[in-house]
Amino acid sequence: MLEARLDTANLFKSAVDAIKDLVQDCNFDCNDSGIALQAMDNSHVALVSMMLKAEAFSPFRCDRNIALGVNLTSLTKVLRAAGRDDTLTLKAEDAPDVLNLVFEATAQDRISEYDLKLMDIDQEHLGIPDTEYAATISMPSAEFKRITTDLMAMSESVTIEATKDGVKFSSTGDIGNGSITLRQHTPVDKPNETVEIELSEPVALTFSLKYLTNFCKAQPLSNQVKLCLSAEVPLMVEYGLEGGSYLRFYLAPKIGD
């Protein structure tokens, strides 16, 4: 059986919130290392990969592999009933029909309990190759959100160009064009505002802004976001969580001319 308790429901609420508009039905794959999720959006342009490691929970217990087939819209409805600071416990039997969720507000001695019906989801898993990316950009997640939102007003796509001088986001549309360039920036007193560019070779790729703005719904999960680019492979956008857990998005580049 699965039993996984989070000190605050916040993490799980924000993670589900971040992906619910991209994927609808997906399996939460539970085993002794934690809770993982991999799902593509309907049009097979983007892939979500989430890993909540066992260490993120206390306690965490999962004796055997359990796939929890969940409709994220339904899960969102249930999670709305959880206070951000409530403790959240997920429980399921070995071959479950339901996912049991318990929210506890210890200060108020209030306990709420929900059973969410599960579904059989036949989902194909994709193998994501280990990639040595040409460019890895770490930047404030709020800045990335601002850039994608601002450029969305200009065009439906953005070209991300990483060079030794910095990273440039540029869009060209009917009304004109716009660009934002960030240079490496490491303020000692404000680590959350760091912009770091690791570059093995310059790279420029074009992506759909519709998807990138969608990924930015994960912004509350982490102060920093990592963008990993290589020529002709999907962009990886990573929101790192405590203890090595993560929420990653992969986006296929635009191709041809």
Binding site: M40, H44, V45, A46, L47, E124, H125, L126, G127, I128, P129, S157, T206, S208, V233, P234, Y250, L251, A252, P253, K254, I255, G256, D257
Partner: peptide, 14 residues
């Protein structure tokens, strides 16, 4: 204009 690639052409099925 550039076309949108599919994630499935980059990542293979397990």
């Amino acid at each position: 204009a550039k076309g949108q690639g599919s994630i499935m052409s980059f990542f293979s099925k397990k």
